[in-house]
Design a binder for these strands. Structure first.
Lengths: 253, 253
DNA sequence: ACATGAATATTGGAT
DNA sequence: ATCCAATTTTCATGT
């Protein structure tokens, strides 16, 4: 998996290494170095000299990680052009992207480590508890929202946006359901309000609005009341014990 | 900067390494290995055996990177508890977080590399072109939005959200300005609509709404017209040549 | 290519 | 702790 590595490379070694393994493609290249990072594109930023981990993946994505946080200090989701060169005797990496026009420029002041890794592509990733899954589940079992509900449509696009679930209740009234997989905020309430108002205008029928989410913020609940809309508690993930509940097999050293 | 590294560690060596360098704190630890990753918390996910780079930062954040993309396959912004142990003879890392209750579980099947890095904290990061900066600039020079405009408030919180810029125009009418640092979408139009409607209710005065952004999508412009709101072109970053315009110093090898 | 909206969003700021 | 809104959001998806 480790294809190649150089510790404390000289400027020339670093450039040669990057040149070889970036050109080859296929490899994930990491540089651990003191460097300066400059970004210019959708915004602009400058990072003074500091220690960073630069990660270049085979798909052309680039990220510069500092000592904290999940989010990189600088990044580029895609690069169309990667160049390595010398500037004032310092190795410089230019990562360019067209559309949008963006540039990340990294000057390596002192490099501790450069390595090329072979990460085979992997498959088999499953995510549970997305809003999409929640929507499917509720479309199949609308009684979880309220008894007697009949789902007419999912992801129904109208001019002011898309309605998550469009339904008719036991008494024949139209119902607009807005789903949130996490805590619902005021924004969700306003979204629902907009749909309900528009559907009333379009159909001339009485329309009820339901916000379905696991929880709701206090201000959002207040706004919901004012707008005469309803909240319904619905969880994205069925409650169950997390994987930690298998202590028998786990032995700390 | 490279504190310690072991290539092709045995299970025992890996556990000992993690135990030492995670306990010590301060270090950024990376494991390159074939592993299985399991997540359970706000959602749930399973990643089958595959090659990944696991990054554990000193602040307790964890991320698992695959062969592509800026976004990790699995992550945890914060961990309150990190444990390493053996399960069925396999090294396992448990990263737990309270509030929200979350768990990432990584089983290392075959480890190619484990390393501990010393990344000194860095200062000196400057970002230009944020919405906050745009707001400051426009508050100082409101004529960039329209002549005769007087800014009354910035980030004015009303019950349905925060108004970016609240102003009065040359004729004495109230103006609500919604700013976007990038292309404005329908969502921004709805936001503005919400504020304008609410301010009209609260004041009883006529209120104009202006969406200020560098560009706007076609559907958003249409929605803006229907709602009788205005668009004003304003750029977040002053136009200038990107750093690439210094070819004289750059010599590709 | 453009537009839309979700996300285990993350992160920072205000209350 | 809670809530809200920006983000170089990224990313998948539909048109």
């Amino acid at each position: 998996m480790l294809r190649d590595q150089v510790l404390d490379p000289t400027h020339e070694e670093l450039i040669a290494f990057l040149d070889e393994h970036l050109r080859a493609g296929r490899a994930l290249v990491q540089v651990v170095a003191e460097c300066e990072v400059l970004y210019h594109g959708r915004a602009a930023s400058v990072a003074d000299a500091g220690d960073y981990v630069v990660m270049l993946k085979a798909d052309g994505s680039l990220q510069v990680h500092g000592y904290k946080g999940v989010k990189p200090v600088n990044w580029q989701p895609q690069t169309d052009d990667l160049r390595v060169g010398l500037e004032d005797g310092q190795p410089v990496l230019l990562a360019e992207r067209r559309s949008p026009e963006e540039l990340v420029r990294i000057v390596f002041l002192e490099t501790a480590l450069v390595q090329a890794l072979d990460l085979r592509e992997h498959a088999g990733f499953v995510l549970m508890g997305s809003e999409a899954e929640m929507q499917r589940a509720l479309a199949r079992a609308p009684e979880l929202i309220e008894p007697g509900l009949t789902v007419l449509d999912r992801e129904l696009p109208i001019d002011v946006g898309g309605i998550d679930l469009f339904a008719r209740d036991a008494l024949g009234s139209l119902v607009v359901v807005e789903l949130k997989r996490a805590k619902a905020t005021q924004e969700a309430v306003h979204q629902l309000e907009r749909y309900v108002t528009r559907v009333r205008e379009l159909t001339g029928e009485p329309v009820r609005g339901v916000l379905a989410a696991p929880t709701i913020t206090k201000p959002a609940l207040a706004a919901l009341g004012r707008a005469e809309l309803a909240f319904r508690e619905v969880t994205a993930l069925p409650a169950c014990e997390p994987a930690t509940a298998q202590p028998s097999l786990f032995e700390p050293p």
